[in-house]
């Protein structure tokens, strides 16, 4: 079976002040990768103007681009408008759903969305007490359930979960442990482990580390720009040679 070359990055935080800069770094990406996955925090403030910059920087590439939003992209309450304008620019945006990208006869399934926090097993918030706490935890629980269904329904040769928030603590190492509950949730990993995936890509944790693994053995990669320090990183699936 053909190898798949997955380029991934997150937390590009584009705005007017960076217009044109990121695009320069990804020119020629088609020689290195078959698909580009972008794990959220595409903007700084989540404004429509910033969303347009993102659409310009990521559109018209010779390879498919699949993205999710991050918490910054929600800040101005224009998340849906940003999704719409990215989709109009030919970018696939996952909002708790899945998609299949055909790559040279191989079906690459990608499922996911923004994700959310709550913390990790043994040290996490529970759906208990005040309505605000319950709503916080329920938001993650609902997302995880939608991802589980999306993964199950994917008819693909390989499956990748694309998220902004982290599914594990491993890739948060370097961040203050006190803020882990705001950086991810074990429920995201649990959903992926239940249905199976080849790779889990996320961002959000700028001070974290790149590599981790879910309790079920799925490789996790934190591709936040300040972590990988490259325009993107390429992960090769199913083969020794890319």
């Amino acid at each position: 079976m053909t190898e798949l070359r997955i380029a991934a990055v997150a937390d590009i935080h584009l705005g007017e002040d960076l217009r044109g800069h990121y695009r320069k770094k990804i020119e020629g990406i088609e020689r290195r990768a078959d698909v580009l996955l972008v794990g959220g925090d595409l903007t700084r403030h989540g404004t429509i103007a910033e969303g347009r910059v993102v659409a310009e920087e990521l559109s018209g590439l010779p390879i498919p681009v699949v993205a999710v939003l991050g918490n910054h992209d929600y800040h101005s309450d224009h998340n849906q408008e940003i999704i719409d304008l990215l989709r109009d620019a030919g970018i696939t945006v996952l909002d708790d759903e899945g998609t299949v990208v055909p790559v040279d006869g191989v079906r690459l399934g990608v499922a996911g969305g923004k994700g959310f926090g709550g913390g990790f097993a043994g040290k996490c918030a529970s759906e208990f007490g005040e309505p605000e706490t319950k709503a916080f935890v329920r938001h993650t629980k609902d997302i995880a359930e939608r991802w589980r269904r999306a993964l199950k329904e994917l008819d693909a040769d390989h499956k990748i979960v694309l998220s902004h928030y982290s599914p594990v603590k491993d890739t948060l190492m370097g961040e203050p442990p006190e803020i882990y509950p705001f950086l991810g949730s074990y429920m995201l990993a649990e959903a992926a482990d239940a249905e199976g995936a080849d790779l889990f890509i996320h961002g959000h944790a700028h001070a974290g580390t790149e590599k981790g693994v879910t309790p079920g053995g799925i490789r996790v990669r934190n591709v936040a720009l300040p972590v990988i320090k490259h325009a993107y990183t390429v992960y090769c699936l199913n083969g020794d040679d890319c």
Binding site: K25, R32, L225, K229, H230, A231, T233, V234, G239, C242
Partner: peptide, 13 residues
């Protein structure tokens, strides 16, 4: 300042 470098080596999973 984060210096965004050109992509480096691939990782084979």
């Amino acid at each position: 300042l984060v210096e965004v470098r050109e992509p480096g080596e691939e990782e084979h999973l």
